[in-house]
Every structure is written in structure tokens, then in C-alpha cells.
Design a protein around this nucleic acid. Structure first.
Length: 203
DNA sequence: TGCCAGGCCCTCTTTAGGGCCTT
């Protein structure tokens, strides 16, 4: 596993639950190496069924756009190659993990990285934020936004910027130069009340 | 036609319920 890089990803989908037949319609991801975006992945994919008005409104992704896209199995095959050997991050990772697992299972593929969740980390670090939606958090951290939320690549780019800001805050509070993935996992699992103590004792 | 999830996290909790996040 590459310790100095990770993949930040975001799915747009036909709905909330792959167990109910929902499918991915777009995948966006950036590779973050030492805090810098060094690679990108973005593709629409045809899910084999029309998307609802709600999803078209929510994402801006229409059935006409999807009718010209490659089918899910082709896109996910390419994305599987993109993420091999990398740890993974998503905002509310439990959602994206369900769709990643579901779509890769359909093509008998998988991945070897571990997931971290920027939503869970932000709840630990930014306990006074108005809420922990991606758009609110980027605004809260003064991160400039100049694109459309609810598109996969844009959301993954914004999650990457939030991620870098959170790592910078951890570095500042601990004095360490690099934040190991294991510390992220530890922070994500501890109680909110213990975050300050964990960071203060981590040197 | 109508309806659909799941993990986290708090609290008036743990023999439970409801809000927050993601599409």
C-alpha cells in the first residue's frame, strides 16, 4: 500500500441503495500525493435504466447524457485499475463504499485499500461547524468553490481540499509533519470528547 | 401505485428513537 498517496472518490447514483437495485451513474476521483492532486478520473456510466427526475435535477445528469455513456462494467473496470494499491477516502464513505463494493462485485473485481471517511473525521475536528455537509464544510474552512456540487469529480476535488485542510489542522495540533493513515482511523473511531486528548498526546 | 437504506451519534439510551449524511 502506498503510504504517501490515496484516492478520494465520489459516486453519483440512481438512488440511495444498491440493495434496492440502484446503480452508479458517474464516478469521479482524484489521486492525492503528499497533499497535491496528481491524477484524476471522471466518467459517466450507463446504468441500464432511466434516472428519476429527482436524480436528474439533483445531479444535472440526464438520461440523454447517460445514453451516450459507456456501460457500468466498462467504466468500473477502468476505475478498478485506477484505485489498486491505494487507500480510499469519501465524504460519508459508508455510502460510496456500498456502491463501490456492489459495482465491483458485478465485474468480479475488488480493491485492496482501506476506506477513511471525511465526514466522520470532520465531526471530530470541527465540532462547532453548522453541519457536516460537504458544501457547508468547505465554506466553513474558507475553501473557494467554483463549480457544481453533486457532480462526481467536483465533489471529489472539494473533498480533497477539505481533506488537506483537516490534515493541516491535525499537523498544527500535534506538531507532526505527516499524518499517518492509522492516526486518521484512530481519530475516526474515538469519541468526540477524546479527540483533543488523543491529538495532544500524539507526538 | 406506493414505497424503498444504512451507519453514525446523541439522548429524556442500551428492552429505543430520531436526526444527520450520502444519491
Amino acid at each position: 500500500m502506498n503510504a504517501n498517496s490515496l484516492i478520494i472518490l465520489d459516486f453519483e447514483t440512481t438512488g440511495l441503495s444498491p440493495d434496492n437495485g440502484d446503480r452508479a451513474i458517474e464516478i469521479g476521483a482524484v489521486k492525492l500525493e503528499n497533499g497535491v492532486v496528481t491524477d484524476r478520473f471522471q466518467e459517466l456510466m450507463y446504468p441500464g435504466r432511466p434516472v428519476s427526475h429527482f436524480i436528474a435535477d439533483y445531479t444535472g445528469i440526464t438520461n440523454v447524457m447517460l445514453s451516450k455513456a459507456a456501460p457500468c462494467h466498462e467504466v468500473m473496470g477502468r476505475f478498478s485499475d485506477f484505485i489498486q494499491g491505494q487507500n480510499l477516502v469519501a465524504h460519508n464513505a459508508s455510502f460510496d463504499k456500498r456502491f463501490l463494493d456492489s459495482e465491483l462485485k458485478r465485474i468480479s473485481s475488488g480493491y485492496d485499500g482501506q476506506f477513511a471517511c471525511s465526514l466522520l473525521l470532520s465531526r471530530r475536528l470541527y465540532q462547532t461547524a453548522p453541519n457536516h455537509k460537504l458544501g457547508t464544510l468547505t465554506n466553513y474552512k474558507g475553501i473557494a468553490s467554483n463549480g457544481s456540487f453533486h457532480r462526481a469529480l467536483y465533489d471529489s476535488e472539494m473533498t480533497a481540499k477539505l481533506w488537506v485542510a483537516m490534515l493541516d489542522d491535525i499537523k498544527q495540533q500535534t506538531g507532526i509533519d505527516e499524518v499517518p493513515f492509522s492516526l486518521i482511523q484512530k481519530l475516526t473511531k474515538t469519541t468526540k470528547a477524546n479527540v483533543g486528548k488523543l491529538l495532544a498526546n500524539y507526538r
